[in-house]
Every structure is written in structure tokens, then in C-alpha cells.
């Protein structure tokens, strides 16, 4: 679409801008202010300069949490994206089965995040949980409070349970937008299933997958409530992710300065990853559609 150049559009943006700025910029400024001081209360505070940043960047617990965070985010993305595409391809195209599937698939997305943790806690406990008891019956001493591997696997499984539907629904709606004529043409050409997927379905999916991967990366990078309820970050600190480390520091110990410095580093990391991703996608789209899209 050819957009008109008109700076009066700013008036339409203004109400939204004021509200978001109130919620985003004022707190961000405060975080920056915290990060260079040792704050006890508004009157008692000392300027520390860059000390907190230095401490935080060299803190081995935080570095470990950061590595765990990346490992977790990439693991769940690597599982959820292919699985979600697969489910979208398998789903019935129309009829009551299609709407029933849609409703059931959306279910996990609408459950409050800490309730998701509770559901999986109830499901995997060794004494009252179906999965916990079931695995033990099979002869494996499954225990998420003792065994870090079990805890990790369970959290990944929980995240797959929770978020694969998002990818599946996005891809499903992408697939529904492909006109039947494309498939007919493919049938005439005797195209293999793989060729249909690679040259007809996947290109249509890129747009929605971009949204899906971006949302999934951002959310998995901020994951807090689910592992907190399920494992409490344990055993040891094997499932303590960045958000939890930060929340413990900020709320639990009230270390405003260090946690603010850490917040900023955290934010910069997400900003960089998402910017690179966003720019790469926008540029590849620009090459594909020379007449200019959205």
C-alpha cells in the first residue's frame, strides 16, 4: 500500500504514546537512576557510578543463569516450532472438528502462568501426580526436586505443552490462507508432498512464523511464574532463570542498585536479539516484495 506522507498522523498516535510512555519511560528512567546508586530510601543514597554494572557483569551466578536462559530459550524454540508446524499441517481443514480442535488447542494459552505451574506440579508429583506416579511405576526414579535432569526435562515439557499451541494456531491460520488453486496446480505437476510443503506452504508460513518466533523468544526469555511454581528454581539453581534471579534480588533482598543494573543488561540483550531478528526479517521481506508491503 502506498502510504501518504502526513505528519498530522502524530495526533492519532498521541494518546497511545502518552499512555505507553507513562508505563514505559518513567519506570525505565527510574531503573537507570537506581543502577548508579546505592539506594536505601529516597533520602539515604550514595552515588556509586558504574560499580554495580561491573559487579553484575562479573557475577558468576548471573552468568550461569544467562547461559541457562539461552539454552532454555533455544531448546523450546527448537522443539515448539517444528512441532507446531506439524500439528498445523495435520489439523482438519473445516467442519466442527476444526473448531473443536481450535478451542482445545487454545486452552493452555489462556491459563494464568502460575496456574500452569500448579497444574504441572500436581501432574508430576511423585505421590499424587499422574505422570509422576506413572513414570515411577515404569521403574524410573523420577524426581524433579532432586534430579536436575528431570527438572529440566519437565520444565521443557511444560513449556512445550503451554506454548506449542500458539505456533500451531499461527501456522494453521497461515495455511488456511493458501488458495486451493495452488494445491491443484501442484497436483497437476505431480509435486511431491515435500515439494508442496517447501514451495507452497512454507513461504506462506514465513510471515506468521516470524510473529510466532519473536513472541516465543521474548516470552521464553522472560519466563518466571511457571518454573518458579513448579521447581522453585531448584534443585540447587539448575532451573533458576534470569527473571527469577532478578526478582529474588529486587524484591527478596531489596538490592535496588544491583538489580537495576542487571535489569538494564537483561533488557539490552533482549533488545539486541530482537532487533537483529526484526531487521533481518524486514529486509528479507523487502527483497521478496519489491512493490513494498506493510
Amino acid at each position: 500500500m502506498n502510504k501518504v506522507y502526513n505528519n498530522r498522523a502524530w495526533f492519532l498516535i498521541l494518546p497511545m504514546l502518552l499512555l505507553v510512555a507513562f508505563s514505559a519511560i518513567i519506570p525505565l528512567m527510574t531503573v537507570v537512576n537506581y543502577s548508579v546508586q546505592d539506594v536505601f530510601d529516597a533520602q539515604t543514597r550514595f552515588f556509586t557510578g558504574t560499580e554495580w554494572f561491573e559487579t553484575m557483569l562479573n557475577d558468576s551466578a548471573l552468568q550461569a543463569a544467562l547461559l541457562r536462559q539461552f539454552a532454555f530459550s533455544f531448546t523450546v524454540l527448537a522443539i515448539e516450532v517444528p512441532l507446531g508446524i506439524g500439528i498445523a499441517l495435520l489439523m482438519p481443514k473445516r467442519g466442527w472438528q476444526a473448531s473443536a480442535m481450535l478451542i482445545l488447542l487454545t486452552l493452555p494459552l489462556l491459563i494464568p502462568w502460575n496456574v500452569v505451574g500448579s497444574i504441572w506440579q500436581l501432574f508430576t508429583r511423585g505421590d499424587i501426580g499422574l505422570m509422576g506416579v506413572g513414570i515411577r511405576e515404569l521403574g524410573y526414579a523420577y524426581n524433579i526436586t532432586r534430579n536436575p535432569t528431570d527438572a529440566w526435562a519437565t520444565i521443557v515439557l511444560m513449556d512445550v505443552w503451554h506454548w506449542t499451541p500458539l505456533i500451531a494456531l499461527l501456522c494453521y491460520s497461515g495455511l488456511r490462507a493458501i488458495p486451493d488453486a495452488y494445491y491443484q496446480a501442484a497436483r497437476i505437476d505431480r509435486a511431491s508432498k515435500w515439494a508442496v510443503f517447501r514451495y507452497i506452504q512454507l513461504p506462506k508460513l514465513t510471515n506468521v512464523l516470524v510473529i510466532g518466533v519473536l513472541l516465543r523468544f521474548m516470552h521464553s526469555f522472560m519466563i518466571y511464574a511457571e518454573p518458579f511454581v513448579l521447581t522453585g528454581g531448584g534443585p540447587g539453581s539448575s532451573t533458576t532463570f534470569l527473571s527469577q534471579t532478578l526478582t529474588t534480588m529486587a524484591i527478596g533482598q531489596r538490592d535496588l542498585g544491583p538489580s537495576a543494573a542487571f535489569s538494564l543488561i537483561y533488557f539490552l540483550i533482549i533488545l539486541l536479539v530482537c532487533w537483529v531478528f526484526y531487521t533481518a526479517i524486514m529486509n528479507s521481506q523487502k527483497d521478496n516484495t519489491p512493490q513494498g508491503g506493510a
Partner: peptide, 15 residues
């Protein structure tokens, strides 16, 4: 504004 704990360097930075 008191609770925002402004300091001179950060004020300069944002300006």
C-alpha cells in the same frame, strides 16, 4: 519526583 532518585549524571544522560 523524589522517588525517582535523580542524579546529575543520569539527568545529563537523558537530556
Amino acid at each position: 519526583m523524589e522517588w525517582m532518585v535523580w542524579t546529575l549524571p543520569t539527568a545529563i544522560f537523558f537530556s
